[in-house]
Amino acid sequence: MAHVLPDEVMSAAQAGDPEAFSRIYAALAPAVAGYLQARGAEDPEACVQEVFLTVFSRIGTVRGGYQGLRTLAFSVAHARYVDEVRRRARRPRLAEYDPDTDTRTADSAESLVLGSLAGSEVGQQLQALNPEQREVLLLRVVADLSLEQVADIMGKSTGSIKQMQRRGLLKLKSLVERQEVLV
């Protein structure tokens, strides 16, 4: 369950209170970072900073209290991730790989994320879903957003989000059941 801030914090932030901004950041940033990391953002921490710069610059326009703010934060996070994917597609980085000269010792961000999820093999199972189902489940579970909020973020109807969630969960269930049979 997501941490909920009282409406007074939102009002104080809209009035420019720095402490209110800190409380909002502390409440939302971990979930936003988790969402961006699970999506595979190259630098989730930097992306979180960009998200909150945008959110805080638009805080005066937020309606719906804290839940409206959460929806805005994850909408911005989703948009930043989409922008990153588009930027990567436009400017592919090509480099010749020579294992003899490769001195890297750290795993890639993707390997770290999948490794952190590998305890229950959730990462592999999520990869088995289609991208929209995966996105819906990440926004619903990691970001703890409502169906309506996810629908707003993804630009789809609540009914289609429900259906994608249902199908994604059914697919995950069948993968887990299949894995249990193999064990």
Rank of each mutant, 00 (worst) to 15 (best):
E135D: 12
R178D: 15
L169T: 11
G168M: 03
G159A: 12
D43F: 06
V142D: 05
D144E: 10
A26K: 02
L172Y: 01
L69D: 00
P92T: 10
E50Q: 10
D7V: 13
E180P: 13
E180I: 13
A77S: 07
Q165E: 13
A77Y: 03
L182V: 15
I153G: 05
L72Q: 14
P6S: 03
L94R: 06
E148Q: 11
A118G: 12
V141H: 00
E84P: 10
Q124L: 15
Y66D: 07
A29R: 01
Q37S: 12
G115M: 11
R70Q: 05
V176K: 11
F52D: 04
E50G: 10
V122S: 04
I24A: 01
Q127T: 12
E148V: 14
M154T: 12
F21W: 04
L137V: 08
P131N: 00
V55W: 01
A27I: 09
G159D: 13
A118I: 11
V82Q: 12
E8M: 09
R70N: 04
A33K: 10
V113W: 08
V62T: 08
K171V: 10
L53M: 14
Y25L: 11
A38L: 12
Q37P: 01
F74C: 07
Q149Y: 08
E177P: 11
Q125L: 14
G168V: 08
G123Y: 00
A95I: 07
Q149M: 13
P92W: 07
G34E: 05
I153D: 05
G64T: 03
A73G: 01
C47D: 14
R93N: 05
D100S: 09
A143H: 07
D102T: 00
